[in-house]
Design a protein around this nucleic acid. Sequence first.
DNA 1: GCAAAAGTGTTCCAGATACACCCATGT
DNA 2: ACATGGGTGTATCTGGAACACTTTTGC
Lengths: 222, 222
Amino acid sequence: MPLPTESGRPVLTTNIVVFTLRDEQLKLLLIRRRNAPFEGCWSLPGGVVGTDEDVEANAMRKLEDSTGLSGIYLEQLYTFSAPERDPRERVISVAYYALVASKRLQLRTDADSEGVGWFSLNELPELAFDHAQMVDTAHQRLAAKLDYSTIAFQFMPELFTLSDLQNVFQIILNRDLDKRNFRKRMRAMEQIRQTSQVQKTGSHRPARLYRVNNPHEVRIIK
Amino acid sequence: MPLPTESGRPVLTTNIVVFTLRDEQLKLLLIRRRNAPFEGCWSLPGGVVGTDEDVEANAMRKLEDSTGLSGIYLEQLYTFSAPERDPRERVISVAYYALVASKRLQLRTDADSEGVGWFSLNELPELAFDHAQMVDTAHQRLAAKLDYSTIAFQFMPELFTLSDLQNVFQIILNRDLDKRNFRKRMRAMEQIRQTSQVQKTGSHRPARLYRVNNPHEVRIIK
DNA sequence: GCAAAAGTGTTCCAGATACACCCATGT
DNA sequence: ACATGGGTGTATCTGGAACACTTTTGC
């Protein structure tokens, strides 16, 4: 396997589908393109991978750049390589997806700069390249992983109520869940624990606050 | 996103984990390397992706080259990009895995050429680069997919007995299954149908032969 | 006292598991 | 007749789904 001359190499990029939950909706981060092709069009964050750069490290760096946060859950999604996906020349993109706890972002996102925005999955603008396909694949993967992994907890802040948690599941799965069955299932999972604190909001009974046992771990379950 | 000069591009390759079942074992195809690095070492088939070549098409081509067959099930596995995975320079590999029906190969494999071989998963030689990791990832994916897809049927020839099919499951999952429960489950899946033919082998009752309903389709189930 | 969300158990059903004997054939 | 793998049904267990009322608070 002789390596090719440098002129025979395709361009390698990353793209990241950054999910968060805000305003009771699953949202993702888009960036408005400043250059051709697709100038002015919304697109996923990402960038070109340098010769000596690790692909995942590149994705993580771009993710940190666009959110201003570190320690975010990041997972490789799929590598997109359709020959005409970039009109200029052959560009291959390794797509990742990332999950950010809503509360962490709220610190920053008031300062949303021009050309960066959070969009609800239901109201996406036209996307550049094959990014719509990436979003689709990422959403499917996310929904599938709710069932057999502890990935949902990546969306949760330090302290949260069981109703908050149920909301997260309902939004991602896009259907209502039974409260009692949901709580039973969460208890059985043993991924969260009660705290002694409660949250008082509005004119009703205060809600017990919970905490994730291993906030940075995503385990395959069952 | 300006594209980089050509001198700033990493090399892109594919590798394929080709599984088949032979001699009651899950086996995979390895190729002995003729050049440095890892000269003489066994490795996964694959090759460099050209600038204008689709990555999946490249993998399919390499797969057809090494097996002499076409129409094989091929699925993207993962993209490996650790910075030191190739000692020469930065090489990124998009790994695929493929499943071949045992009977199809038996036509060809008597002519196994020097430097190409089928190895049982339990008795793998030392592998070049990070190929051992690729094999591991592929095996995990395969075992997981048995549960929630119809991927297992990719291993089956045109006609097969239920015992054959049960064997396939047992080998991949590496544990025994109950005969009656297995048959009940297969019937419920509705992926295979009885034929009117039977197979007479040895001094016992002949076995009914079955056929896969949609041989080229892999569906997600349940 | 009323509105609003929090919290709590039991019944039912379906799918998975455990398990043992008769059948058709070749020698 | 016996050895060999082919073929079949039932009882039980378990995890998921459906379902309604009481509790605590603010106003």
